[in-house]
Design a protein around this nucleic acid. Structure first.
Lengths: 210, 210
DNA sequence: AGAGTTACGCTACGACCTGTAGCGAAAGGC
DNA sequence: GCCTTTCGCTACAGGTCGTAGCGTAACTCT
């Protein structure tokens, strides 16, 4: 979670976990009020009732702090079994859209991704804290559809991995692009169209490839 | 292109177009060398051989300047007729991926989108200068596929518009997500999978609905 | 209990960036 | 030639960054 120095020493005064949670909460509040670009370390420290130096002892810069602050929000996503692949997709896409509507995530997600194009450790942190955590949803949805018989059983495990990755990029990318770039609503009609496109495409691929 | 004050006055000293082009070129160079976050107005002014005040006379802030600087790069995309919908899609997606590989666009695109979540005029500028310009590609590709008989002719024009928008968000979103978030290569195998998914999905929708 | 180690809050600081103001000079239109 | 606008330059106030140094607090081990 936080960037504790290599070895977690057993001696000395331990870091305050209250400070940790207060800082992350203050960061989210500052994102809501100020947005990414006007959020400053000093402001967050003030809100959290903590010295600015305490922030720098835990996070090297704003980007890493914000990644940790918003990462927890992405763990709320769930994939209840609604009986069909299309219904499962629609449900999780709407959850994801609701998450992207929140001002904290809306202003922060693109910013840290932009920063990560020049910061390999940050990219790894984003991947570990946010992106990879959500791939489980694709995996679970695909396996469930296979159990239902909506998709054929695995043949080539490499191809399956590639398809899982593709679906993940398509769904996450399309929703983010719709919400943040096109700036149009991710509502039921649009989600239904997207889900139909995916289910149709996967079905066609299965019919063609075996 | 540049944010000239409302009425283009016919009297007085005209703005230097050399300065305009020098500034935009310097901005792209600075993006390559420094990236978005370390790019400063003073640095750009120095590179362009121009006073900092001249920048502020044309652009209100860094975001607007960078949008104009990278917008022109997105006009290079073309859609040659390769004989099939899938081939056309694969070709344009690879072009788009190559564009996103350039350090100028890679570091700038996400950053200005992030900024635009709290800046409506900036969002409008991005839409007008970059996003909407590329929708022509979807329109052209779809009509061409209809002429070939790969897709059915239009029934409901509203549904056609919605599908065009969907395809645009799916393609652009998936490529951006793959390239910048997943940070994995947008190469031929991946592009072939994406194109097959789209063509299959569109075909299935046509078979079902039309 | 005492010694050692680490985290904390606080203050101060140099370096940097922002965005604006004021100036005289340059470059056009009338 | 007069008017208007832009230009380069300098200077500036305001704000942020990230670090250093200090004394104090909290916890562990002997």
């Amino acid at each position: 979670m936080c960037s504790r120095t290599n070895r977690s020493s057993r001696t000395g005064r331990p870091r305050s976990t209250e400070a940790d949670t207060a800082i992350l909460e203050a960061t989210r509040a500052a994102l809501v009020e100020l947005g990414w670009s006007k959020l400053t370390m000093g402001d967050v420290a003030g809100r959290a009732g903590v010295a600015k130096t305490t922030l720098y002892r835990r996070w090297a810069n704003k980007s890493e702090l914000v990644v940790d602050a918003v990462a927890v929000l992405f763990d709320e996503l769930e994939l209840p079994d609604l009986g069909s692949l299309q219904a499962d997709i629609e449900n999780v896409v709407l959850q994801f859209a609701a998450l992207l509507e929140r001002p904290e995530t809306k202003t922060a997600l693109m910013a840290v991704v932009a920063e990560s194009t020049r910061d390999e450790p940050l990219r790894e942190r984003i991947r570990a804290s946010i992106v990879d955590r959500q791939k489980r949803l694709v995996l679970e949805g695909r396996m469930r559809a296979q159990r239902r018989g909506e998709l054929p059983a695995d043949r080539d495990p490499v191809a399956v991995d590639a398809t899982d990755d593709l679906i993940f990029d398509v769904i996450a990318g399309a929703v983010v692009h719709r919400a943040l770039v096109s700036a149009e609503p991710v509502d039921e009609p649009w989600v239904a169209r997207l889900s139909a496109l995916l289910v149709g495409g996967l079905g066609a691929a299965a019919a063609a490839g075996g």
